[in-house]
């Protein structure tokens, strides 16, 4: 469980030799994330998404307010180690987070650091690699893998720690469409089968439609919080925050404006297809063959 009360993060910036000002990156966030939820965080560049993410595993500590991860106050340094074992981060650039020259050794890296017995390490590494579908590459060199595969190795390294939460900070931004799908499929499965909390930070709106809740951040605040069908119901609002709707939502919105009757919520192209399938069987006031 992740909970915050009036979470603030500020840093000082020198504007001249003897003058400085304060930049407030997080401006009083109140969040409450239950165990097992899939949360997406979207927002303009500089809105504070990554700063928030870095608080979730105590890479940064609040300068005001309080953040609790599994009941532990992140600003208490006695909690730092167990918070980091609980909450793993996957970053944007797949090449910057691989440390070993063999896949399975990379996945084992953190376990070695925290002193897990060797037998247990191999068992956990094997299980983690199997979970993300990378077991057959266990003895390969990571530099021969694709971007999506490297990110799945990074996820396996976190899984081996038996975390309760995985934070993906734009982990799909540098990937090709195939790689993006691999990563999203992997975290969706971890969420549904292993009930691991997923916090997905992304600029690809299509990736957020499977989440339980979406947080929209703007200038250090959470300005919208709700399920995808709620968030994407107001396209003009999203535009104001420098965002957009997934393409299926956009098409549905345009068609509604043309008078098409679309009563059910549309998030994906599959949803949109089912609207037209319904027309065929007479749902949605079909008047086939005639122009209206």
């Amino acid at each position: 469980m992740i909970k915050s009360e009036n979470l603030v993060y500020e840093y000082k910036r020198n504007i001249s030799d003897n003058k400085e000002d304060r930049i407030r990156v997080l401006d009083g966030l109140n969040i409450d994330i239950e165990d097992g939820q899939f949360i997406s965080i979207v927002g303009h560049n500089g809105s504070g998404k990554s700063t928030l993410a870095r608080h979730l595993n105590a890479l940064l500590m609040p300068t005001g307010g309080t953040l609790w991860v599994n009941g532990m106050d992140t600003s208490d340094e006695n909690n730092t180690l167990s918070i980091r074992q609980n909450t793993g981060m996957v970053f944007q650039n797949p090449d910057n987070q691989i440390v070993a020259s063999v896949v399975e050794e990379d996945v084992a890296f953190a376990l070695e650091n925290i002193g897990v017995p060797t037998d247990d390490i191999w068992r956990r590494v094997e299980k983690s690699l199997a979970t993300v579908g990378m077991i057959k590459y266990r003895e390969d060199a990571p530099n021969h893998l694709s971007g999506g595969q490297k990110q799945r190795i990074a996820i396996a390294g976190i899984l081996a720690m038996k975390p309760r939460c995985i934070v993906l900070d734009e982990s799909t931004a540098m990937l090709d469409p195939g790689g993006r799908k691999e990563v999203i499929d992997a975290v969706r499965e971890l969420n549904s089968k292993e009930h691991i909390n997923i916090i997905l930070i992304t600029h690809y709106m299509e990736e957020t439609i499977y989440s339980d809740r979406i947080f929209v951040m703007n200038r250090g605040r959470i300005v919208m919080d709700g399920p995808p069908e709620h968030i994407f119901s107001d396209i003009s609002m999203l535009k104001k925050y420098n965002l957009e709707a997934p393409q299926a939502v956009y098409i549905a919105d345009r068609l509604r404006k043309e008078g098409f009757v679309i009563n059910k919520p549309v998030l994906s192209m599959d949803d949109l297809v089912s609207v037209f399938a319904d027309y065929k069987i007479g749902v949605g006031n079909v008047d086939r063959g005639k122009k209206s």
């Binding site: 068609l255 098409f260 027309y279 209206s292």
Partner: peptide, 18 residues
């Protein structure tokens, strides 16, 4: 593209509209 798709559907699919 989505915009072309909307135009095509408006032109070719005749269901009752409001």
């Amino acid at each position: 593209t989505p915009d072309e798709a909307v135009r095509e559907i408006v032109k070719k699919i005749h269901v009752k509209r409001i």
